[in-house]
């Protein structure tokens, strides 16, 4: 018999093993929920499946009595807009500054200390400042995401740009490239797939900042809704929202990963 370290599950085995913890968790939940509801039918902490179905139906498929909107979709669109805007702006800033400081020693000397300093400021600590400067509107929430993840992306991009082998930078020069052409034809294309990984890594924080900002000041949004219904201990709404957010996060991550593999085969093939 082979050593454990050399044994691998087959295709079916992999799926079964992967699903097993989810199934176990679901069973645990059902058993615990049943036990609590039996003791107290009004218990709110672990609602039964039927309450979830009701809540989901109410939030997603029936117009709200107060506003006439389908709440889950309104919240989702509002949150995704903020997230997309924040991440897109951060990624663009990160790309430009990362390449600039990673490639040009003079720019690195000028900007690196500033960027390092900024990246150490805890974004949540300046949230009040953002609200004061930008008001309670959309801009403040998007700004929090930007302030939260841009320094990481810049630093990551800078490092990736610096990692490009010196041989290749020399090669470009012997082929007649000027500085700008080296950026455009060597550095930029090579850091693009790395930008996608950096974005994937920072999406977790982006969600965190988004939900935090929405919890404090918003009139719609996934984070806003969770914190609103918390007052009524509405676990039947909160948990489906959490699952939905997780699902959205998974889909975004999965899509970015797939896109990267399709668009940059040389990057994934060489690894």
């Amino acid at each position: 018999m082979k050593k454990l370290i050399n044994r691998e599950p087959g295709r079916v085995g992999k799926w079964a093993l992967g699903l097993l913890p989810f199934v176990l968790l679901a069973i645990c939940y059902l058993v615990a929920s049943d036990a609590r509801l039996e003791a107290n039918p009004n218990d709110k902490l672990l609602p039964a499946m039927s309450s979830f179905v009701d809540a989901i139906d109410r939030m997603a498929f029936e117009p709200s009595k107060r506003t006439g909107e389908y709440q889950l979709w309104v919240d989702t669109v509002a949150s995704l807009k903020r997230l997309a805007l924040g991440v897109l702006i951060s990624a663009s800033i990160g790309l430009v500054f990362g390449i600039a400081t990673g490639t040009i020693p003079y720019l690195r000397a000028g900007f690196s200390p500033l960027i390092t300093g900024l990246s150490l400021v805890p974004p949540m600590a300046i949230l009040p400042v953002l609200f004061i400067i930008f008001g309670l509107g959309e801009l403040a929430k998007v700004m929090l995401i930007i302030i939260g993840i841009t320094p990481f992306i810049i630093r990551d991009m800078q490092q990736r740009a610096e990692e490009i082998p010196a041989e290749q930078v020399i090669k470009m020069q012997t082929l007649g490239a000027n500085t700008w052409q080296i950026v455009l034809r060597l550095v930029w294309p090579q850091v693009m797939p790395r930008l996608l990984s950096a974005v994937r890594l920072s999406l977790g924080s982006a969600w965190l900042f988004l939900i935090a900002a929405e919890a404090i000041a918003a009139t719609e949004g996934l984070g806003y809704r969770i914190f609103l219904v918390r007052r009524y201990l509405a676990m039947d709404t909160i948990l489906p929202y959490v699952v939905w957010i997780t699902f959205l996060a998974f889909i975004i991550d999965f899509t970015l990963a797939r896109y990267s593999r399709w668009r940059y085969p040389w990057f994934h093939g060489a690894q």
């Binding site: 082998p165 041989e167 090669k171 082929l175 090579q190």
Partner: peptide, 17 residues
């Protein structure tokens, strides 16, 4: 480095992308 002198290194000479 400039166009007058071409070089081939032991590795990393071609652009992977």
């Amino acid at each position: 480095p400039d166009e007058t002198r071409g070089i081939v290194f032991q590795r990393y000479s071609v652009l992977p992308h």
